[in-house]
Amino acid sequence: MPIVIEKLTYTYQSGSVNAFTAIMDVSLTIHDGEFVGLIGHTGSGKSTLIQQLNGLMQPTSGKVLVDGFDMSDKKQRAKGRALVGMVFQYPDYQLFDETVYKDISFGPKNMKLAPDEIDRRVREAMRLVGLDFDEFAEKSPFELSGGEKRRTALAGIIAMYPKYLVLDEPMAGLDPAGRRAVLAMIDDFRKQLGCAVVMVSHSMDDIARSADKVIVLRDGAIFASGTPAEIFSRSDELYEMGLEPPFAARMASELKRHGFRLPGGIYTNEALADALAAYKGGDLNV
């Protein structure tokens, strides 16, 4: 069963003079096992939207159904929330316990799992995020490097075996190698745990690499939604909006303006090179 969002509207300080509508009439579905990339400016409503997915905020109007559980209902919310794992932008917001092991087991403990099941899950989560058990289990999370903290925070959520994994800017502040590693890790969870992933990122290059579906938010409404190829073929519009479309998509659009005849839906450098290879022999030249 999917996450279904129906005509969701959310207004901060509803009814007051400072009322501000962050999300307006948004409907979307996140299917099992799907990788959804969520893109938009600061202030486009992304954060508000993902906080609705596990009931941290409840709709002003409309509905959020997680596998049929209505997130506006207090009792159903607990069941829905158990299905949705949420990783916030900075690991510093969640790490608190004495050791990495204890910190990762916080979520599973709250789920009231049996001790040996918790132990098994913590070990598996650490393996999945690439933290060596013997080296890190007894370390304080506050002694770790930025990248290791990020892994620990991820493991804390992974150990809860979420059916939907929601990631808010999981690569923010990491160096290129760190970004590649985290992205590869997320792909890995998906394969091994079969979970759906909703990833918020400013970097469309990162989203382009893994997403099945891309949703672009603008001023609290869905501006565009579709496959990466569909969305990134509108790279000029995205660029105008102040977003950063994948480089290859912008390049392809620029080359088309200069008279290159390229197929639609190019958003990786590899695909662009493939398309340009046809020009090499000169037989396509006008």
Partner: peptide, 29 residues
């Protein structure tokens, strides 16, 4: 608070001591 709620932290139920203990994951970060 939201990050810990998302990890299933229970901040509402229980007596005052339980509630105080539940605040630890929020106060330490």
């Amino acid at each position: 608070m939201k990050a810990q709620l998302a990890r299933g932290a229970d901040l509402e139920s229980g007596n005052i001591f339980k509630k105080a203990k539940a605040m630890i994951p929020i106060l330490i970060p």
